[in-house]
Write a protein that binds this DNA or RNA. Structure first.
Lengths: 345, 345
DNA sequence: ATTCCTTGCACAATCGTTTGTGCAATGGTT
DNA sequence: AACCATTGCACAAACGATTGTGCAAGGAAT
């Protein structure tokens, strides 16, 4: 039986005024609403004395502003989204907003349901979403309605909603180029979830580097269903079997890379002596692996901050940002996990 | 300008009934409230037609139930808390509750503020909190008020609130015993934040194993300020310098262990040939490190589920759980990162 | 034909704020 | 002395849902 919270009415009674006067005094509108300094002081003292905290619930109803933003991600336990969540809550709190966390479990159905619930039922003032992708009419609906939404990590060319993503194409290109520059000709690709922009852009960069390097961008060199360890493991096994000549791999995620390492370990393949590996997305452990991994580092914090800033700017000014697509730079971090192909040693 | 949401009044008008009738029909109370099947059907059809979603805001005010639970952690980007957050949102959603995420940034001041805000202003129906520790009168206040609160990862013997933690003492003991069993006599400890129960219990297990092994539990063998990589690095450097005889380290967190590995790398120390290492808390990368790490695995998912279940049970039944302290088992995972001390080789 | 019970619904209050409007009391003009 | 402007506050409506109560219409019983 939680103690009943103090209401404005009680404060008003304690100060000997009406709720309306108390409300205005507490809102700092004493001047403009012609409330005498004595009255104002009395209200403030009463409020302090009683430990009054205005009910956000009542306030939300009256003001038609929930003071909430939503955060909808496929997997809240993924460190990438967790980092974004942290940045979002920080910014939100700084602006008097609270954050509702929702996890779609990589399911489109859940995504739609949660989205509807957050927008309509909870009436969030804004939303940061990492959509599964695939169909996205629910997103164009949001765009049409003029909802305050920022898409992170993914984007959709046909949807007019601000998006924040890493420069995935460049990351894919840089990684692949680094591999090619070491003399590799047979380069495998452990991709994430096809259809997501983050995956497909990385793939595009991969292909561009191959073509530039005079190599054929063979589709059979690309494997993988999603960003998981399992997919990375399976794909690596398949690739090593189907294309024994492969001397380097580019993994599109931490988990994909760890899956590859598992497959390597089973075959007693060493990085980089027997096979080279580059992974997308840095991690604290990357430099302590059996062989430290060269990575494409993306600035997760910057992505989170940028998304939160865009969203809150949108909420406060009620106008869409000019730029729809915000690219956060990536960088290649060389940790010497790319060696020379065996054929050239 | 987001489209105005459909209200109950509009549904009622469309169905040609009063809002009260519409409300009862939608609540499935047609029978008990003597609403004719035709009327009920008309309301349901109107609601479907208009895409009616009842406003949680209005509902919260009227029902005096916010439908919210709070999640207050020191660092939302920490994978440990992120995993708990995910479990919490899953359970909450399943019970029609939404989750407010709050990050105290390891600051007691923030913790208090956010707590007050969540409880009083947002009027959450329940709260999962990982308190920084230190002073905790704000927590005993909660206990006294009978608030629905579950503490995770930490606990406080003098506070009557249900808590869910790993069996840290046993974890500390198991790790240390494994080290001792390999013949080590000089064993260092990279602790986390002193004063937190998770840290102090691990330390207790560490000490118990030492004593049982006939070793002196020398305080100078224990270093560290918090669970960060930096603390692990610094402490390792200090220990290696102050106690050159040390042949094994026990790190209380992933980050602490990575810090140790950095210090090892700088000194060209190999695990386990030159020095042994065990880390508390498993991670996907643990088996792919230069030397795979033996770990004490804690079941983060179980902790999250247990906390969420306790909280929701408390909310629904309005009664405190019988057991205050819930221990989730840990296990030792041997990955051969403990060798024989050099002196014995 | 009157009374009484049941059915089926509408009315109105309520949750805790915010805010437009109204209305006394005060003081200053002519 | 009559009038107007200002000051300082209270009253009441509104936000959108829920729920106790009231009331008309219709049928059954006397």
């Amino acid at each position: 039986m939680p103690a009943e919270p103090v209401t404005l009415e009680q404060v008003a009674a304690a100060a000997g005024v009406s709720p309306s006067t108390a409300s205005r005094a507490l809102a700092g509108k004493a001047r403009e609403c012609r409330i005498s300094p004595q009255t104002e002081e009395a209200v403030l003292k009463a409020a302090r004395g009683l430990g009054f905290q205005p009910s956000q619930v009542a306030r939300s109803l009256r003001n038609r502003r929930s003071g909430l933003i939503g955060l909808l991600v496929p997997d809240a336990s993924n460190p990438f989204f967790a980092a974004i969540a942290r940045k979002a809550t920080m910014f939100a709190e700084r602006h008097g907003l609270s954050t509702l966390l929702a996890d779609s479990h990589d399911s489109m159905e859940h995504e739609r349901e949660l989205l509807a619930h957050l927008m309509q039922s909870r009436q969030v003032e804004g939303l940061i979403i990492c959509s599964i992708g695939g169909s996205h009419d629910h997103l164009s609906d949001l765009a049409r309605k003029g909802a305050n939404v920022v898409i992170v990590d993914r984007w959709f060319s046909d949807i007019q909603l601000p998006s924040v993503t890493s420069d995935n194409e460049r990351g894919g290109y840089l990684a692949t180029k680094a591999i090619i520059d070491h003399g590799h000709r047979d380069i495998g690709c452990l991709q994430g979830r096809p259809g997501t922009s983050s995956n497909d852009e990385r793939l595009k960069g991969f292909t561009r580097a191959l073509v530039e390097g005079g190599l054929t961008a063979d589709g059979s060199l690309v494997r993988g269903d999603d960003f998981s360890l399992q997919s990375g493991y399976r794909s690596t096994c398949e690739l090593l079997k189907a294309r024994p000549g492969i001397s380097a791999l580019f993994a599109f995620s931490n988990q994909n890379a760890l899956g590859a390492l598992r497959a390597f370990a089973e075959r007693k393949l060493r990085v980089p002596e027997d096979i080279s590996l580059v992974m997308f997305d840095d991690a604290p452990f990357a430099e302590f692996l059996a062989s430290p991994l060269s990575v494409i580092r993306q600035d997760v914090e910057a992505i989170g901050s940028c998304a939160a800033e865009l969203l809150i700017g949108q909420i406060r000014t009620a106008e869409r940002p000019k730029e729809m697509l915000h690219r956060v730079p990536v960088e290649f971090v060389d940790r010497a996990s790319i060696g020379r192909p065996r054929s050239l040693v």
